[in-house]
Design a protein around this nucleic acid. Structure first.
Length: 225
DNA sequence: CCCTGATTCGC
DNA sequence: GCGAATCAGG
């Protein structure tokens, strides 16, 4: 059986997706592959983010391969499209959320060391639609974000085994009202849950966790198993 | 090579 | 519905 997309995971997917995190990043946080993330995002109808690639529509390719029957003359002239923006059904503002530059990111369980390495940076300015700057592209030696998560003080956090998160008794913090989605505990374990506190406006986390979330980290790549 | 996201298609 | 495989651009 495939992954059980519970309300929580879907909610998290939505929020992380909306934050502008990369599919791979989201996948790491949810313990799924980027493919799963992308696939699910599509099925959920989440708005596609700028893709680095353009692919010919299947129809076009099929036609090409199959038959040259319809050259596909454009019925409607390529009139000046003018008007309005391309497609922004949802957002009204230029870039409300747009993006947490990938340089910022993630509440992934990481070692506490991060804390000292990165004393909470001020909340990033996520004002611009910043196209993701690949971390590696940064001129600076520094890198990205991190999180020290898990509030559970006890554990030093062995590492996150790719737990298929299931069996979690959906304590679903209901989407009604906003709630901090900072993950507590390891996904897949019974005690796993989200903070649930009232988030700061514009962010998915409460003030406490927002501080942890928006901090730089050295390596976002392998914090999860 | 690494990263990215999108689509296809077998399951 | 799911997501690996595959594709394709940066």
């Amino acid at each position: 059986m495939a992954m059980e997309w519970t309300e929580e995971t879907i909610a998290r997917l939505r929020e992380l997706w909306q934050q502008g995190l990369s599919t791979a990043e989201i996948g790491r946080q949810l313990s799924v592959t980027k493919n799963a993330v992308v696939g699910k995002a599509h099925r959920l109808g989440l708005q596609a983010r700028p893709s680095p690639i353009r692919r010919p529509p299947a129809s076009a390719r099929a036609a090409e391969a199959g038959e040259a029957v319809a050259p596909a003359p454009e019925p409607v002239a390529a009139a000046p499209v003018a008007v309005a923006s391309p497609v922004s059904p949802v957002v009204t503002a230029p870039a409300p959320v747009a993006a947490v530059p990938s340089a910022v990111v993630a509440p992934v369980p990481a070692s506490p060391r991060v804390a000292e390495a990165a004393p909470a940076v001020s909340p990033i300015r996520q004002a611009e639609p910043a196209p993701r700057a690949p971390v590696r592209a940064e001129p600076e030696p520094v890198a990205v974000a991190a999180p020290a998560p898990v509030a559970t003080p006890s554990v030093s956090r062995p590492e996150t085994p790719r737990a298929p998160l299931r069996a979690v008794s959906t304590p679903a913090p209901r989407r009604s009202g906003l709630s901090c989605c900072w993950p507590l505990g390891d996904p897949g374990t019974p005690g796993f849950h989200f903070c649930g506190a009232t988030p700061v406006p514009g962010k998915p986390y409460c003030s406490e966790h927002a501080q942890l979330a928006y901090v730089k980290l050295r390596d976002r790549r392998d914090n999860v198993a």
